[in-house]
Simulated scan of single mutants.
Amino acid sequence: MQKIRIGYGYDVHQLADGEEFWLGGIKLDYHRGAVGHSDADVLIHVICDALLGAANLRDIGYHFPDTDPKYKGIDSKKLLAETTKIIRNVGFEIGNIDATVSLQKPKIKPVIPDMIKCLSEVMEIDKEDLSIKATTTEKLGFVGREEGVDAHAVVLIYKK
């Protein structure tokens, strides 16, 4: 019997004027951006957390702590590449990833194909194995007030 595992990730980042907005490895052209120790790419962070959790390897903060200056401003694609390497080093491969970003503005549906291309290349998986969806909160809560962005991801990994 093949061993399969499921992992889940959730993350939130505050939005602020004048910050760069990286999402899914793509820099968005918007006057507000996510605040964080790294480049604050909430989508990459939830994928990392889900992959690490599925492999029972703790979380992104354990492997890449925000107290370590070497991660200050780091491109989250590097964290994703390292996370993928970590789970592969213990014998797991990615089956598929399903992620949702909740953001009132800007609208990201037009750049989702670019995000899928970028992240699938970083993880060395087929584009068909990565689903990225976008939603709003119908102007409710911190996302609706455009104070922040959140994301969820579910992954399936399996032993090679």
Rank of each mutant, 00 (worst) to 15 (best):
K109P: 03
R5C: 12
L51S: 06
L79C: 12
L52M: 04
I60H: 08
D150I: 08
G53K: 03
P110G: 13
L103R: 07
R145P: 08
H37V: 09
K27P: 00
K85M: 11
G144V: 10
E146T: 12
K105A: 11
A99H: 10
E147M: 15
L43G: 10
K70L: 06
G91M: 01
L140S: 14
V42Y: 05
K107S: 09
A151S: 07
F21W: 11
G7T: 02
D150F: 15
Q14E: 06
V35D: 01
L15G: 05
I60F: 04
K159N: 14
E121T: 01
D39S: 09
V42R: 11
V42G: 09
I97W: 03
K70F: 11
L57I: 01
K70P: 07
L43M: 05
I6D: 02
V111I: 13
G18H: 04
E121C: 00
A34Y: 02
R145E: 13
G95V: 13
E121M: 07
K3S: 12
R5V: 15
D114M: 09
A55K: 00
Q14W: 01
R5G: 07
K78L: 15
A81G: 09
L80V: 12
A16Q: 06
P113E: 08
I47C: 11
E93R: 07
A81I: 04
I87Q: 12
S76Y: 01
V155C: 10
K3N: 10
D49P: 10
I97E: 08
E93Q: 10
H31C: 04
K3F: 06
T137L: 10
D49H: 05
A153E: 00
V42W: 00
P69V: 09
P113F: 02
P106D: 14
S120R: 02
G148T: 11
V149K: 15
L43Q: 07
V101Y: 11
L79A: 11
Y8D: 14
V155M: 08
K85H: 14
I26E: 00
A50R: 03
L140G: 13
D75T: 11
V122R: 03
D29S: 03
I26F: 00
D114A: 13
S38E: 01
H31S: 03
A40F: 00
W22I: 11
V90Y: 04
Y8H: 14
M1Q: 10
E93V: 08
M123R: 03
T136L: 03
V154I: 14
Y71K: 05
H63V: 05
E121L: 02
D150S: 13
E19M: 12
L79H: 15
D11N: 03
V12R: 13
S131M: 12
Y158T: 15
V35F: 00
E20G: 13
N89Y: 04
D126K: 14
Y30A: 02
G144P: 14
